Structures are given as C-alpha cells and as structure tokens.
Amino acid sequence: MDAVRRIAVVTGAGSGIGRSVALALAEAGWSLALAGRRAGALEETAALAAGAETLCVPTDVTSPDEVAALFGAVRDRYGRVDVLFNNAGTFAGGGTPVEDLAHETWRQAVDVNLTGAFLCAQAAFRQMKEQSPQGGRIINNGSISAHVPRPHSVAYTATKHAMTGLTKSLSLEGRPYRIACGQIDIGNAATEMTERMQAGILQANGTLAPEPVMDAADVARTVVHMASLPLEANVQFATVMATTMPYIGRG
C-alpha cells in the first residue's frame, strides 16, 4: 500500500468470517473500521483486536444512507480507505425448495448479499478514486456457491453468482484509478452459519451427511495476503475450502 497507515473497512465484522478477518488484519498492523448491524458484537470484535486502532459503525448495508454514513465516518476518522472487505451476507432462504421460496425471503437475500455489496463497493470506489494517493482494493466475499449450488439454495446461489459479476466489473472500471478488486470463495469455514454442516446437511443425491469444516483463521490469512499486495498485483479469484468437503464432484 502507498500509505504508511493502512486502513481497512470490514463489513459483517461482528461475527464469523468478518470477525476472523478483522482480527487477522489487526494483528498485521491495520487500522480498522468495523461495520455490522449489532453494535455490541462490533465492540466485542474491537475488544478482541486490542492494540489495533478501531472504529465501530453500526450499519445496515442495505441502506444507502447508512452505507454513506459508514464511509463518511471512516473518512472523518482516518482520511482514506485502503481496503474494503465486502463480507456482510445472509443465507436467507437456505433449505427452502424453489417453489416454496417466499418473495420476501428472495428480496432479503438479494438486498443483503448483492445490493448491500454493491452499495459498499460503490462508496469505497468513490473514496478510493478521490483520495490521495489514489487507489485501493476491494475484496468481495463470494462463496463456493458462486461456482456450484447446494440443494434448496436458489436465492443464496443466485446472489453469489452475481457477486462474481460485480467483482469483474469493479476490476475493469477500477483500472484507471489504481483500484483493484478480487474475490475470495470460501467453502465450509467453521462459523455460526456452518454449524449445521457438522450435524448433517442435504446433499445433491437427497441424503443427509455431515461435512468437514476448516478454521476461519485459515481464510483470514488469505484475505490478509490479498489485502497486503501492492496495487500493481491482484488476486482476482481465490478459493479456500475444507480440503475434503464435497465441492469437486458436487452434483
């Protein structure tokens, strides 16, 4: 990074992958803006990142006004953004067959996973374009579901496929402004969202089977590597997964 002081915004920072990435960035010397719906959870992440400079901004990423307020607070506190880890997401509708999926549930998945990611990326892009030195990096949290679906996951899978298009478009449009964009596709990291996988989850052949998981810290180390590259280099897509999860050969 060009700036000696490196500033990262992490959405969904109150738990799971977001918290793990925030702590790994803190350990690597980054200053952090932590965003998420729950103020208490953000404060817990900040406390765990003791020694790092942190800013907690409760944010609903589906709200343009709240996203604007988040990046305004970051600008006021730090003066710039070097990295956005675009991580906030929901598995809304997971486990529901397509014919039974409620419109409201579909909209929730699209609003959080796609529109929320776009709003945060747009705000970060604007800041990175305007700041001096110009540029920065956006890292989108995709998923194995950006490649292949699970049964009964149409809303989540559709939004994660769309995330890949968002990543590619941001990469292209960011070139003139030294804005890099990459995507990390994560499979079976051990978080609150994946607890059910170890008890047994629906497979493509209709059976229930437990699936292996990996430590979320292994994902976080990859994000830190992506974040720390000079802007002349970019990890466009990375897949980090539990080694023996049923991805290769799924379906």
Score class of each variant (00 low, 15 high):
223 V>C: 10
136 G>R: 04
158 A>I: 09
215 D>Y: 10
126 R>L: 11
30 W>E: 08
169 S>W: 11
88 A>F: 09
13 A>C: 05
151 P>N: 04
16 G>S: 00
216 A>Y: 07
159 T>P: 04
104 E>C: 06
96 T>V: 15
181 C>W: 11
210 P>A: 04
112 V>T: 07
5 R>H: 06
128 M>L: 06
189 A>V: 10
178 R>M: 09
134 Q>W: 03
172 L>H: 14
163 M>K: 09
20 S>L: 01
160 K>W: 03
151 P>D: 08
132 S>A: 14
251 G>D: 12
190 A>T: 09
242 A>W: 07
181 C>V: 05
233 A>V: 12
221 R>G: 13
95 G>W: 10
73 A>S: 14
146 A>D: 06
4 V>S: 15
5 R>L: 07
78 Y>W: 14
119 L>Y: 08
121 A>T: 00
67 V>R: 08
38 R>Q: 09
135 G>P: 05
166 L>Y: 03
30 W>G: 02
2 D>F: 08
181 C>K: 01
20 S>A: 15
137 R>I: 03
51 G>H: 06
49 A>P: 02
91 F>D: 10
199 A>S: 15
107 R>M: 14
25 L>W: 10
141 N>H: 09
10 V>W: 01
10 V>F: 04
94 G>V: 11
20 S>E: 00
200 G>I: 06
250 R>H: 14
242 A>Q: 00
226 M>Q: 01
56 C>Q: 12
229 L>E: 12
25 L>I: 10
140 N>L: 04
233 A>I: 01
246 P>Y: 04
248 I>E: 15
78 Y>P: 08
233 A>F: 07
102 A>D: 15
207 T>F: 13
234 N>T: 15
54 T>K: 02
191 T>D: 12
54 T>Y: 05
170 L>A: 13
250 R>T: 05
163 M>E: 13
124 A>W: 09
41 A>E: 12
241 M>C: 06
229 L>S: 09
179 I>V: 12
235 V>N: 11
124 A>V: 10
86 N>I: 01
205 N>C: 08
171 S>K: 01
109 A>M: 02
3 A>S: 15
30 W>H: 09
54 T>D: 02
103 H>E: 15
174 G>D: 03
29 G>Q: 01
